[in-house]
């Protein structure tokens, strides 16, 4: 069997610029393996080593996701090979369409039994791709996994949710999204980087299916930052603290404290 990791090649919106018309330009945002997907690759590497199985990366994105710099960055993190659908027409693919294309790539892997994914993407952060991917494949799906280990014909997942700690047993095939602290991704060393160039990277330009659209955009705008007063309070700590407390009290913000319990 193969263990598959779904990953994204994404830029950080912190570094993107937004035009007055609401257009978002990632031109200055240096793309990379989406931060949490590096965690999933590390979890996958550990698991594949324990199982003696291959670790395959699948990815969909704009043309940049298929460039050698992108595939090598993914392979250097420990994937054995990657399957990438990369075309600029897919740059704005929505959550559901992304999951559909990834599911088709998982099918192309052939003997995939387990798909791992990160907690959320750097840029969109919807946290929904693993769920839709699992639904599209019709596989058992859980998220927020703090650990994943093989156990006979299944996997055992530990996780901590607001309700408490759980240990789950999933029959394979399954999709598991890992928590952001499920593993500490190791920065690729020189050997990993050099080795990445020798590993197979299958890049295709056309999606293997027509993905679900993401609606018809009627209008776009730059987000209005919330209006803030911007009152600057300086002076020594006691004076500044007193001034702030006075202002908060005058605004009625110290009367209605409650903790939401």
């Amino acid at each position: 069997m193969s263990v598959v990791v779904a990953y994204k090649w994404a830029g950080d919106p912190q570094e993107a610029s937004v035009g007055a018309d609401g257009s978002v330009d990632f031109g200055r945002a240096r793309p990379g393996i989406s931060e949490y997907d590096a965690v999933a690759i590390q979890v996958g590497r550990n698991l594949a080593d324990a199982l003696g199985s291959a670790l395959v990366g699948v990815c969909v994105g704009a043309a940049g996701a298929g460039a050698p710099v992108a595939t090598k960055a993914a392979l250097a993190r420990g994937l054995d090979r990657v399957l990438v659908v990369a075309d600029d027409s897919l740059a704005t693919l929505g959550t559901a369409g992304t999951a559909q294309v990834l599911s088709a790539l998982v099918g192309q892997v052939g003997d995939a039994q387990l798909v791992l994914a990160g907690d959320c993407s750097t840029d969109v952060g919807a946290r929904m791709v693993p769920a839709v991917l699992g639904g599209t494949l019709g596989w058992a799906t859980v998220t927020d996994a703090a650990s994943v280990r093989a156990d006979g014909a299944g996997v055992v997942v530990e996780r901590t949710l607001a309700e408490g700690a759980q240990t789950l047993r999933l029959a394979l095939p399954a999709v598991v999204a890992v928590a952001s602290d499920a593993a500490k991704p190791q920065a690729p060393g020189m050997k990993d980087v050099l080795g990445a160039g020798k590993k197979p990277a299958d890049v295709i330009a056309a999606a293997p299916l027509t993905p679900v659209g993401d609606g018809e955009t009627l209008s776009a705008a730059r987000a209005a930052a919330p209006a803030r007063k911007g009152v600057v309070i300086t002076g020594d700590a006691a004076t500044a603290a007193g001034e702030l407390v006075g202002a908060l009290r005058a605004a009625g913000l110290l009367d209605k404290a409650g903790t939401g319990r």
Binding site: G94, T95, A96, G97, A99, Q100, A126, R127, M128, P130, A131, V132, L133, G134, G135, T136, T141, V142, T143, V212, G213, D214, G215
Partner: peptide, 16 residues
């Protein structure tokens, strides 16, 4: 989210 994802997949619906 997982239940929603399964429903979205069954509908081939966009996710927002």
């Amino acid at each position: 989210r997982v239940l929603l994802g399964a429903a979205a997949a069954a509908l081939a619906a966009p996710v927002v």
